[in-house]
Amino acid sequence: MAFTLTINGQSRTADVEGDTPLLWVLRDTLGLVGAKFGCGAALCGACTVHLDGAPVRACITPVESVGKKKVTTIEGVGKTSVGARVQEAWKAVDVPQCGYCQAGQIMSATALLTQKPKPTDEDIDAAMNGNLCRCATYIRIRKAIKVASGQEQA
């Protein structure tokens, strides 16, 4: 059936089965491939997107459960001031190695900084622990969050 979603401020329609995870609607149906497939079980965070600003794992979020909630993906998060700041910090610190997890990391970090503009190390641990980085760029992820929140220089 057809689902009308608000994605990055635009209305998009996808004719898919209701149990299709939002991740695959974004990637395969709508061609927004920024959210990544890593585990399919909410264990790695590579697919993180925002629903009304809150981070969710798109790989286990059925499209029929999204309803009127506004979807923000890595492709659109730069339109928010916090998201743009986080992306800039990620580039200034040159966080990625392979980079595959970084879209999810940026989405979780943006949600964190929207809630807590000056997060502590403990806040960062708690907010980011669901996002795996197989290359283990955690040192620079932490640094970039502190740069984005004005607590450190790049």
Partner: peptide
Amino acid sequence: RSQKSQNLDAITTGQPTYGIDTR
């Protein structure tokens, strides 16, 4: 001298970058 990683813009803005993004 430290030079920034290639594909940094694409990676941080979610543009198609990886094998799995092939369409």
